[in-house]
Amino acid sequence: MFEKPSKLNPALIAGLAIGVVSGLPGLNLINCCCCAGIILGGMLAVHLYKQEFTGEMPPMESSDALVLGIMAGIVGAVSSVVVGGLVTVLFGGVEERFIMKFLEEFFSRMEESGGMPPGSVDELMEQMERSFEESRTFGGILRNLFFSLIIYPIFAMLGGLIGYGLLVKKKPAGPSQQAQA
């Protein structure tokens, strides 16, 4: 009997994707929408894992998706902190100013079109500056890592299950599985 493929590679790739999306300032705003970037990362892990299955292998199960999601979330949490740190070290103030300018213009346009109430842009910019300052301290990095290690596996697990529900075609249970149930 063939065994299922290893979960390590898909979890690592999806986790790194989560890390890049969550670690890059500006791009990480996608996570403001109920952790959409992390949920999509969990779905990506399931999609990649599904590609590794051949006809002789036992079918993929929801427990595989759950474990994959948690693994991708843990990798994503660590890699997002690493990517965020690297970006700060490599680009420092230049990258920060670029992102701030881009976001300020974007949010100002939303404010002018009535999409955001007056005064929201200043408030957002203050929040962004605070988070930039915090992310440069050792305590800030540790706190980020701690929060990420709680949140990312949970949302990536949900993403994995959603991915399993949407992307994986369930095979009808065989006689042995029916007997087990």
Binding site: L29, N31, C34, M116, P117, G119, S120, L124, R143, F147
Partner: peptide
């Protein structure tokens, strides 16, 4: 700390 924790999953814009 609580706001920072939930700030990981939401923009937390006051007006919204």
């Amino acid at each position: 700390d609580g706001y920072a924790f939930y700030g990981r999953v939401c923009h937390q814009i006051d007006a919204r």
